Computed example of a mutant assay.
Amino acid sequence: MTVRESHLVELVDELGTALGSATVQDAHEAPGQLHRAFSVFLIDSAGRVLLQQRAAAKTRFPLRWANTCCGHPAPGEDPAVAAGRRLTEELGVPAVPMTEVGVYTYQAEDSITGRVEHEYDHVLVGRIPEGTEFRPDPAEVARLLWVVPSDLAERMAGDPESYAPWLGGVTERLLESLSPERPGGK
């Protein structure tokens, strides 16, 4: 078991109320235990979002394209604080201010590894300062790609097996947050 697999995650109910804790490994054993997670989208000055291709060593959905960064807060930890730490660990960039734009709850089994994601996923958006240099950890990230948010649905529809199963849902929350009809949206 990797060190990260031994970390604790917060188990929650369907409303996000804390119920206890489990290790990352135990929470992702079939059939999966619903637990708190976060998915980050970094947006650049041109309005593009950064995707990452997950490293081959990942225990869940390796080599699939996903949002900029994702992970699990420790029990009782603010998801934005945990997300800032993971941005530094995975991408070598400093934490940026983030806004939560919604929650996406999903369950998906990785047919290759047999591991299960069952997550109450806080979707966080941050603006990355121009000129920020990324230094991805190769144990976490295979590649990076900037894309226009409105193009993501088309990309996923054309090749769904290349994308993490949560990306569609978290992208919907992102697009809703950018909608001009939503208060605070663009």
Rank of each mutant, 00 (worst) to 15 (best):
M1I: 04
M1A: 14
M1Y: 05
M1K: 03
M1G: 15
V3I: 09
R4W: 08
V9Q: 08
V12S: 03
L15W: 05
G16P: 09
T17Q: 14
L19K: 14
G20K: 03
Q25E: 13
Q25D: 14
D26S: 13
H28C: 06
E29V: 07
P31H: 12
G32S: 05
L34Y: 07
R36L: 13
A37E: 04
A37V: 03
F38I: 00
F38N: 00
F38G: 01
V40K: 08
V40F: 08
S45D: 15
A46C: 11
R48L: 03
R48I: 01
V49W: 00
V49R: 02
V49H: 00
L50T: 00
L51F: 01
Q53C: 07
R54L: 05
A57E: 15
R60H: 12
F61N: 12
F61I: 04
A66M: 14
A66L: 11
A66T: 12
C69D: 11
C69R: 01
C70K: 08
H72F: 06
A74Q: 10
A74P: 04
P75S: 10
E77T: 01
D78Y: 00
P79E: 09
P79W: 01
A80M: 01
A83W: 02
G84T: 04
G84W: 06
R85D: 10
L87S: 07
L87G: 05
T88F: 06
E90S: 13
V93F: 09
V93N: 05
P94D: 12
P94E: 11
M98W: 01
T99D: 13
E100M: 15
E100P: 07
V101E: 04
G102F: 10
Y104P: 00
Y104M: 09
Y104V: 14
Y104S: 15
T105N: 06
Y106T: 12
Q107F: 06
A108D: 13
G114W: 09
R115T: 14
V116Y: 15
E117I: 04
E117W: 10
H118K: 14
E119H: 05
E119Q: 03
Y120T: 02
V125F: 05
G126F: 11
R127K: 13
R127G: 06
R127L: 09
E130A: 15
E130Q: 13
E130M: 11
G131T: 08
G131R: 01
G131C: 05
E133K: 08
F134R: 03
D137A: 07
A139L: 14
A139K: 10
E140P: 02
E140H: 13
V141M: 07
A142I: 03
W146E: 02
W146Y: 02
V147T: 10
V147R: 08
L152V: 12
L152R: 00
A153Q: 13
A157K: 11
G158Q: 09
G158R: 13
D159R: 14
P160D: 08
P160E: 08
S162P: 02
Y163S: 01
Y163V: 02
A164Q: 06
G169F: 02
G169E: 07
V170N: 04
R173Q: 11
R173Y: 03
L174Y: 08
L174I: 07
L175M: 09
E176V: 10
E176F: 12
S177K: 07
S177D: 05
L178G: 00
L178S: 01
L178T: 02
L178W: 10
S179L: 04
P180S: 05
R182I: 00
P183S: 09
G184T: 03
G185W: 08
K186H: 07
K186F: 11
